[in-house]
Design a protein around this nucleic acid. Structure first.
Lengths: 208, 208
DNA sequence: ATCTAATCTTGGCAGTGTCAAGATAGAGTG
DNA sequence: CACTCTATCTTGACACTGCCAAGATTAGAT
């Protein structure tokens, strides 16, 4: 991905600036973190003037919202692909958890902004729809547990538990590594493995 | 808390500027979010010059690290107080979970920066120690489950599951409200209640 | 009483988001 | 083809930010 024009170096009209800016923004955030993100740096990397992003996305939160929408789309695609053909309800949950955290670490730029309500336009209908569709995949998997194993399961709150666990793991995995090192314990497993372990542990419960 | 001198309005030496700045910073973040935080605004609200915070904390991440340390201290105090005198392992976990999320919502400014590795000085020994001590309370509660109910429990990874669930809930509760509204479902319970529900659900497992 | 070091201020530089106004070019109409 | 219209992008400006260096002020020790 070069974000450049094919032949003519400096056409006045870029042609596909909107997608380019979104892609460059995600890369920039992945590289320097949310704090290192700036509209002007995005514009520089895309080879356009410093005010061009503002024209397409209104302001910084507009561009970040576009990145977040893409994040939810990735999330939905990866999780629904991961549970394809998996029937056992516990396995389904484990596969979904692994896919969830791995797509987040594969696309760190997207993931870093997806739930940052302080940076996004939370009223954006496209954002709401994308988030809803991503959550629906998880909700269906938990519903599948209820249908096949436990009709008394509190589906909605169990879905919230699973969602929180996965999202919390993404946020805390660096801290877990730091804490383990500080206590002289072994480092935590890779995030995908740990997601699967946690999903199975929650599914099985804490009692024998 | 006025952040002002008692008698003399403008003494050159503030007297307790370090604590004042930390307190003002937490208030500011609670009010405007992390994005609305700035060293200069903190200085203005504390009634000192724009470079005074830099003298005490080096840079922005230094001040935010101090806020994060205070966050972990609050977390440790609240959680260890919440499990005082509670013996049943499931109840202990539920009480801890409730206390965890409620202290985070009571001190939103502190909570918003506690795990923001991109904004903090992650090598700060005081930060490491404070985080470690907060995690120890949770780890002990899970160990208590192993000791009294299930000696085969994977204590460390179950602790990580609980920690992720609570932290994820804090991050996602606003999104849960939005998603529920968008799907026409009932709003999620208050965050403290939901934390307790989730803790008991994980403890009991998903099967009947 | 004097010296020293900590504390805080002032001034300045480079960088930022956002706005308004202007320049450019594509698309459609006669 | 000439023409206008509109979306796209640039330029310039303003107020704001973090951070650094140098100076002013004061507390505390000698």
């Amino acid at each position: 991905m070069t974000h450049e024009q094919p032949s003519d170096q400096h056409r006045y009209h870029h042609g596909d600036l909107e997608n380019t800016l979104r892609s460059v923004a995600a890369d920039l955030i992945a590289e320097r973190g949310v704090a290192g993100f700036s509209l002007r740096e995005v514009a520089r990397r895309a080879g356009v003037s410093h005010a061009a992003p503002g024209h397409h996305f209104g302001d910084a939160s507009g561009l970040l919202t576009a990145v977040a929408i893409e994040a939810f789309t990735h999330l939905r695609e990866a999780t629904s692909a991961a549970i394809e053909g998996v029937d056992d309800p516990s396995d389904r949950l484990a596969m979904l958890a692994r896919a969830y955290v791995e797509v987040a670490t594969t696309n760190p730029g997207h993931c870093a902004v997806a739930f940052r309500h302080d940076l996004l336009n939370n009223d954006d209908p496209a954002l709401l729809a994308a988030g809803d569709q991503a959550f629906a995949v998880l909700s269906d998997v938990v519903q599948h547990v209820a249908d096949t194993v436990n009709p008394d399961l509190d589906v909605i709150n169990t879905s919230r538990l699973c969602w929180s666990s996965m999202q919390g793991l993404i946020e805390l995995h660096p801290s877990m590594t730091v804490v383990s090192k500080h206590r002289g314990e072994a480092a935590p497993p890779p995030i995908g493995d740990l997601a699967e372990i946690m999903a199975r542990q929650a599914y099985a419960g804490f009692e024998p």
